[in-house]
Design a protein around this nucleic acid. Structure first.
Ligand code: SF4
Ligand code: SF4
Lengths: 137, 137
DNA sequence: ATTTAATACTACTTTAAGGTGGTATTAAAT
DNA sequence: ATTTAATACCACCTTAAAGTAGTATTAAAT
């Protein structure tokens, strides 16, 4: 019951980028070193984030990554979605077929409350409004 | 962001057992067939549940599994714990060192609320009080 | 033009969860 | 006693996530 490493890394990467967005493109090297994320794994993530249009990349010397979509328009839910890590509406917590109020599983009542609250939280948390909060990076 | 298969299976197994506890030991075969859980995987789980004392086993013909610990004393949190699937207090949602209110990560405020609520829900949900609820098995 | 420092691409390795197969052990039923 | 139906144990296979390696491409700086 936790986020995938890929989601965790991505949140931290994008939050870091917001906090350093005024100084031109940010390189994978800088991100990798400052966030202690394995370089090769990080570049894989960056390429994907570029592919889906969250960020843009500039190749060559002095290159790096910058936001394309506004940080206030990227939610934690978006990131989880991207890496198949989301809490899907139709997903049953017990994995019995798909969730709908007609055919409930034994945990439905307890779970539905937590689920709604969690989904709301992940949807309302944008990169913009988490960036800079907290001491750990 | 979901339960492990092992946790999901275990919850369903124990809930099923509560609903059939008056008719003697329940065999792995019956559980496997009625819950459509792979037989060999299920027996592995059952052996573990026996080992930790949630249930007892009777070998040989007419054998099977029965509750040892009361179903009202087994929580979803216990099950998650058992299979390393729990939401640990000290676990940071972003995976940055360990969680404590002194050194917060960027998502601390949002997450802490959901975490507390989730943990409470998993701790208060016992096998006894979910068994029989719902239509799906 | 060449060097340097960056991303992009392709392919591979490692790890842990999930799942399978075969056989030994146990005990009721016959 | 033998058969049958059950759990226990041990070793292996499969899959997906995580992580690594090497090379091609790009563009600024020299
Ligand atoms: S809500 Fe309850 S019933 Fe519906 S899917 Fe989720 S868990 Fe199963
Ligand atoms: S609460 Fe926030 S800060 Fe504390 S650990 Fe969990 S995530 Fe990190």
């Amino acid at each position: 019951m936790q986020l995938s490493n890929t989601s965790k890394y991505t949140i931290r990467i994008l939050a870091y980028m917001v906090n350093h967005k005024d100084t031109g493109p940010i390189s994978a090297k800088e991100l990798s070193e400052n966030l202690t994320i394995p370089y090769k794994f990080l570049t894989k993530i960056m390429t994907e984030l570029t592919r889906v249009g969250f960020i843009t990349s500039t190749r060559g010397r002095e290159g790096g990554f910058q936001f394309l979509r506004e940080a206030s328009k990227i939610t934690i839910a978006d990131i989880m979605e991207l890496f198949n890590d989301a809490i899907k509406d139709e997903a049953c917590i017990l994995g019995i077929e798909s969730c709908n109020s007609k055919k409930k599983c034994a945990m439905h009542d307890q779970w539905i409350k937590s689920k709604v609250q969690l989904q709301k939280m992940f949807k309302e948390s944008t990169i913009e409004n988490i960036a800079g909060k907290g001491d750990k990076i």
